[in-house]
Design a binder for these strands. Sequence first.
DNA 1: AATACGGGGAA
DNA 2: TTCCCAGTATT
Length: 396
Amino acid sequence: MIGFRREVVDGPGRHAQQWRLTMAPASDSARTLFSAYWRQQFRRRLRAWYRRAARELPWRTKRDAYRVWVSEIMLQQTQVVTVEAYFKRFLTAFPTVKALAAADEQQVLRLWEGLGYYRRARQLHAAAREIAERHGGRFPRDLEAIRSLPGIGRYTAGAIASIAFDTSAPILEANTIRLLARLLAYRDDVTKAAGQTMLWTAAEELLPRRDVGIFNQALMELGSLVCTPREPKCDECPARALCPTFAQGLVEAIPAPKAKTNYEAVDEAAVVVRRGDKVLLRLCEPGERWAGLWDFPRFVIDKNAKGRLAEQLVAGVLQQAGIEVEPADRLATIKHGVTRYRITLQCHAAHFVRAVPRRGKSGPQLRWLQVHELANVPLNTTGRKICQFVGKWMGK
DNA sequence: AATACGGGGAA
DNA sequence: TTCCCAGTATT
C-alpha cells in the first residue's frame, strides 16, 4: 500500500479506538471514504440481509481452510454455478491437503478438465505439495505465508485468511469492485491503478471488528445477487438508502463500462492421426496454452491458401510431432473462443505413414492411445469434443 | 500498464 | 454475438 500508512486514531464513533487509513504524509485529520455512521449502518444492514439471503453452497457447509482454498481457486474468473459440481467431485477425490499433495498432477488436471485456466490446477497442486513439506500438511494461518503460495494473490489470500481463520483482511474481486464502486459513486475506470487503490482502501475501511469472513462473503453475495452488472435489484438492496449511485440514478453508468474486446479471428486445424486402433496425442509443454494437458496435433493454418489444406495438415503434423501422415476424412468444424481469439478449428483425420527422426531439438512428448483410453487423460474442451468424432470415425 | 490464460452462462 | 465471471503471473 504505497502512499498510505496505518495508524491508530480516536474514532468518532462509539468505539474508543479504531483502525483508520490516513493519507501519507501523516495529517492530523484522518480522512475516510465513509463516515463512521455510514459504515455502522452499512455493516448492520448487510449482516441482516446476509443472514436471510445467503446461498447454501458446498464450501460453506463447514469452515475448513482447505475447502475454502479449493473453492476460491476454482471461483477465480469462474461463476458459482459452474464451480459447484467441480468442487464436490474434487473434494471427494482429494478430501485433504495431504491427499492432494500425494496425487498425480495428471489426475488433478483430469478433474479440472472443462473449468479452464488450467494453471490454477497445477499451482493448486504445487501449493499442496509446498504445504505438505513446509507446513506439515497444515494450511498456514499467516496472511503472508498464504499469499506466498503459488496461485494465491492479494484477493485469494484475504479471502482464505478471513473466511477460514477470521483474520482481518480485505478482499476485492469482481462482485465487490462493482458494489464498492457504486457505494462510492466512483465514476472513473475501476480497472486503473487509482481505482484499484481506492477500492482496496474502501474494502479495508469497511471491515468490521468481528466476523470478518462472514462480512467479506456478504459483500460478495450482495454484489452477486443484488448489485448485478445490469439491472441491479435496488429495490431488494439493504444498502439502497446508503447508496449515492442509486440516489443519483447512475446504477447503469457505474462502474464505467469496459472498453470492448477486439477479437481476432484465427483458423486452426486439429489432426487425429490413426495408427491401427490407436490415435496420437501430444503433451502441451510449459509456457504453451493448455500446458500439462494432452491435445491432438493442432496448429494455425492459412485459410486463404485454398485447396492446400492437405499440405498444411501434413506439414503441421510433421513439424509438431515428427510424424508423416496421409490426410483422410474431415471430421468436424468447431468454433470456440480462447481469451481474445475466436478460433475456427478444422478437425481432420489422417493415417500414420512413418515417424521422421528429428535432428537436434526434442519435440513434445507423444502417446498413442486407444479410444477408450482417451477418457483417462486430461484434454481441453475441444479435444474432448473431438474424441466423440474419433469414436464414430474409428467405428467404436 | 498491458496481456495471457478457458470455458460456460446469460441477455 | 457480446458481456461477464469470488484473479494471478508475467512482461
